[in-house]
Design a binder for these strands. Structure first.
Length: 474
RNA sequence: GGCGACGUAGCCAAGGGGUAAGGCAGCGGUCUGCAAAACCGCGAUCGCCGGUUCGAAUCCGGCCGUCGCCUCCA
């Protein structure tokens, strides 16, 4: 067994990198905040889930056994509003978007969580948690609502680095006279007529947003977990409130050992969000690009940094991906012995090491990818010289393995251009046969016409000593 | 107003005290019937000003600019 570098992760709570030591190795309990399912996911969501998928995959590769829980928020103001507008039940609305979301995650090769709790199905656990908070004096009831008593929690603000006084000063929240403190947040909301509701000790109502994650995390992962993740926009108030609820309820600190947050995706200099309306949906991207290109785009920068979406960046990712694909192609048949083959094996081992060093430093995928591009270049260079041997095979295996650790899907079909390629394969094969005959007869004009016209259709032909290769280009 | 992040070649981006990974684009070349792909070669002194240091893109201070959070949000 070779030894791997110590893994360190940046913890939002302490604002520094820390050695990664889960509570009970090799188990890692990871909770990632899921979407509120009232609309289609945009690429900002996609980015976040690709990031945490990469993190999970790397942990698993390092031998950890990750238990991954991700919620669906299916009870919430916007859901109620939207379903009323569309004249459908909230269940039909949320089910529709949950189904779509899971399909998109599959398309992006994001591993499914082990459990996907729905807020609406955890009401009993939520009520129990709220009752506990009331008993301990951390919550109070007003007209069927229940609020968390922020002033009672000495630690409030520790995640986001805010003090109660600062928050009050800049508070933009509407003042609700019934609350003891403007910053107290709702654990339970009394139902208004016509709204979905559940029975509770405080009358019919529904859970507040923050409480569901505390309840689900507690229910499926226990009182203390290793990793809690989400977008940086969730740090305050959502995750701050989760800490308050969970730690006050269980009396155990820390609720979460490592808080991890991904930087937000920007579009045109602004955060992409549903409320700003400046969004690109995941479907639009999946229609236009290889899902691996989306992943490469995301992993090309460090996960904590904000990234700006541009068509150019995406095109760059798509093109870069094709270099990796080229490096994974089967080696040519007629090979030559060469001394460089042994050097290539060495290169593969160095790359593996560089990869682990980069990834161990708070998942530095951008640096890791740099090493993989170097390896890909070496492989392609060897192919060009036809010096193929065991080293070449090892290098290809290494490249494939490490790209898969990052979550790239490297099937033959994917590399060729996805399902679209499979659909047109028989016809393309026919045209290539015809063109090959023309080339034998040196009828270049006609042969080139076929190639050009196929290119217009997005099908690229490449003549190689092993015959004509093709793939779909986007 | 409070808290925080960032500013590196045309674009994206890593690094973070000893003279700048990688990707895309571009240019030149090899290969090719021509292409494509691939490979080889070519580019930056790191927002501005000042300080610390033998030495700073990397540390400190100030300034300018961009962005995020403080309200629903991955």
């Amino acid at each position: 067994m070779e030894t791997k570098p110590q893994l360190v992760v940046y913890n939002t709570l302490t604002r520094q990198k820390e050695p990664f030591e889960p509570f009970e190795p090799p188990y890692v309990r990871m909770y990632v905040c899921g979407p509120t399912v009232y609309d289609s996911a945009h690429i900002g969501h996609g980015m976040s889930y690709v990031v945490f998928d990469m993190i999970r995959r790397y942990l698993e590769y390092r031998g950890y056994r990750v238990r991954h829980v991700q919620n669906f928020t299916d009870v919430e103001d916007k859901i109620i509003k939207r379903s009323a507008e569309l004249g459908m039940t909230w269940q039909d609305l949320t089910n529709r978007y949950i189904e779509e979301f899971l399909q998109q995650m599959d398309a992006l090769n994001v591993k499914r969580a082990h459990v996907y709790p729905y807020a609406s199905r955890e009401i009993a656990e939520i009520i129990e948690l709220i009752e506990g908070l009331i008993e301990k004096g951390y919550a109070y009831v007003v007209d069927g609502d229940v609020y968390f008593r922020v002033a009672k929690d000495d630690d409030y603000g520790k995640l986001s680095g805010r003090r109660l006084e600062d928050l009050k000063a800049g508070a933009r929240v509407e003042v609700d006279e019934r609350k003891e403190n403007p910053l107290d947040f709702a654990l339970w909301k009394a139902a208004k007529p016509g709204e979905p509701s559940w029975e509770s000790p405080w009358g019919p109502g529904r859970p507040g947003w923050h409480i569901e994650c505390s309840a689900m995390s507690l229910h499926y992962l226990g009182e203390q977990i290793d990793i809690h993740g989400g977008g940086a926009d969730l740090i305050f108030p959502h995750h701050e409130n989760e800490i308050a609820q969970s730690e006050c309820y269980t009396g155990k600190t820390p609720f979460v050992k490592y808080w991890m947050h991904n930087g937000l995706l920007q579009l045109g200099g602004e955060k992409m969000s549903k409320s700003l309306g400046n969004l690109i949906t995941l479907d639009e991207i999946l229609e236009r690009y290889d899902p691996n290109a989306f992943r490469l785009f995301v992993l090309s920068s460090h996960y904590r940094r904000p990234v700006t979406y541009t068509d150019e960046s995406f095109a760059a990712a798509q093109r870069g991906l094709e270099r990796f694909y080229a490096a994974l192609e089967h080696p040519p048949a007629n090979t030559l012995p060469g001394a460089n083959d042994a050097a290539l094996a060495q290169k593969a081992r160095k790359t593996h090491k560089a990869f682990d060093e980069a990834m161990s430093d708070d998942f530095n995928t951008a640096l890791a990818l740099g090493a993989l591009f170097d390896l890909a270049r070496a492989i392609n260079a060897a192919r060009d010289t036809r010096e193929i041997g065991p080293g070449f095979t090892e290098a290809q295996a290494t490249l494939r393995e490490l790209l898969e650790v990052l979550g790239f899907r490297l099937t033959e079909e994917t590399r060729r251009g996805g399902a679209a390629a499979t659909d047109v394969a028989p016809l393309v094969a026919l045209l290539i046969d015809v063109r090959s005959e023309l080339r034998k007869k040196r009828e270049w004009a006609l042969a080139d016409l076929i190639r050009d016209r196929l290119a217009e259709q997005g099908i690229a032909l490449e003549d190689t000593p092993e015959g004509t290769k093709w793939r779909v280009r986007t």
